[in-house]
Amino acid sequence: MIAALTLAGCAKDGHYHDRNEDYAGARQAAPLTLPGSRDQSRYRDIMPVPQARGDFYAREGDFAAPLPQTLSASTAVAAGDVAVRETDADRWLVVGAAPAVVWPELERFVEQRGLEITRSDSASGVIETSDASLVLRQGLRSGTSEVRCDTAGQLNRLCLNSLQRHFEARSASASIASASAQQTPEADSVRFEPRGDDWVMVMPFDIERAYAELAFQLENNFEMEDRRELVSVDESGKRFVIDYITESERTRGFIDSLTSMDLLESMQRIELRLSPQGQETLMEARSADDEPLSGDDQRELLQRMEGLLR
């Protein structure tokens, strides 16, 4: 106890610096101005800072400086790139460009293959041909698009594979990649809502799209042993089970660790459940073991899930 009190007095001017106090005295500096005649293509952010999303949320207890979320937290589709998403019943492409950039590429695809267009409606994002229908819609992420190809309401894999090769070839050129890089990010859309002592995340897209993207991201990001792991996936029930070190466990103080005689961080088993809410999808985080999951830990975990959708 004496040692703990002694170390507590070193937080500001002693052996280590408590960065929580820096927030109170922080000042805003004037932005760095570069010459307007510079070559824009040669300049970029070496260490970009992610933007804050959503409203400020004051957690229970004393204030602690929030840890920044890693910029590599999600497997995002880069500007101009193309990726595949699928469920048991569907398959589609995610293109790293806004619909306004992707639409001319769909028209070019149809023209190059000499397909007969029976209907073309840019407002609804549909091109119908004698062989297949191409459907374009806004992607879940800002600055992305989703492209589907079907015949008589059924997935046309041959058409979709050809579309994938088309976009891969076009992204290798400067056309779609350069147009995508100039896009303006859209407003945030995912929101967090309190439900009594609990928190939920509301996503403004249907449950099939939300499930497919989250399944892909969890399989690629929750694979860190003893830190965060995807345990199981239930597509029919739209559920995920994960093992995760919660925020309260990560920030557990030295005295609490000493009292419990457990100095190591331990993962908690948590169930993430999706449910439809009109045209939106609701995600809940619930404990899947005997250890309760606090509202603060729910909110932090849901914010990490939201980060996977950026």
Rank of each mutant, 00 (worst) to 15 (best):
P31C: 06
A98E: 13
Q279H: 12
D90A: 13
A98M: 09
V147S: 01
C149H: 01
S257N: 14
L309N: 03
A152F: 06
V84Y: 10
I245V: 14
Q69S: 05
A177V: 11
R141Q: 07
D296K: 04
A100D: 12
S130F: 07
S294W: 04
E107S: 14
G36A: 03
G25K: 12
E128L: 14
D22G: 08
R119V: 08
E208D: 13
V233G: 02
A52P: 00
L5R: 06
S260A: 14
E105M: 12
V84H: 11
V135S: 12
R91Q: 15
I127W: 04
G139E: 03
G114N: 05
L230S: 10
T246C: 03
A30M: 12
F192E: 00
L34W: 06
A132P: 00
S145K: 07
N220I: 02
L230R: 09
R119S: 13
D206Y: 03
Y57G: 00
L301R: 04
R228K: 13
F205C: 10
L263A: 06
R108I: 04
S130V: 14
M267P: 04
D296F: 06
P35Y: 07
Q298Y: 01
Q69Y: 07
R310H: 09
R59G: 14
L155N: 02
I176F: 06
Q69V: 10
V49S: 10
S171M: 01
T129D: 09
V84D: 13
G196Y: 09
D22R: 05
T259E: 11
S142Y: 00
G114H: 02
E225N: 04
G9H: 05
I255W: 05
R157W: 04
A3P: 01
L160H: 08
L115D: 13
R228N: 02
S133Q: 13
